[in-house]
């Protein structure tokens, strides 16, 4: 298990939030997705054997949002 934090550009519409959350949650091996509207961050737990932080970054980019930074941290 690992924890991924993605820093996005400014989010302005709350419906973007729902969109990003659903899109990221739909990926295999992703759990506990949290989209922080004001901080412009997405946090999720991933199973690294199934998906990577970069994969999530790609999903969000394809939705049309800028991904500034991806941080992945091992958790026990």
């Amino acid at each position: 298990m690992a924890k991924v934090v993605l820093q996005l550009g400014e989010l302005t519409c709350p419906s973007c939030m729902t969109k990003i959350r659903k899109a990221v949650s739909n990926q295999d091996g992703v759990s506990d997705v949290k989209v922080m509207f004001n901080a412009g961050k997405v946090k999720a737990n991933i199973d690294e054997s199934k998906v990577s932080g970069d994969d999530l970054g790609k999903v969000i980019t394809e939705l049309g949002y800028e991904v500034k930074k991806i941080k992945t941290k091992e958790i026990a």
Binding site: C13, S15, C16, T18, K19, K22, A23, N26, E62, L63, G64
Partner: peptide
């Protein structure tokens, strides 16, 4: 339209 479409793909009915 693009916003609306990507949202719809993820089953979200958006303002767009």
């Amino acid at each position: 339209f693009l916003h609306a479409w990507t949202a719809l793909m993820n089953k979200v009915i958006s303002i767009e």
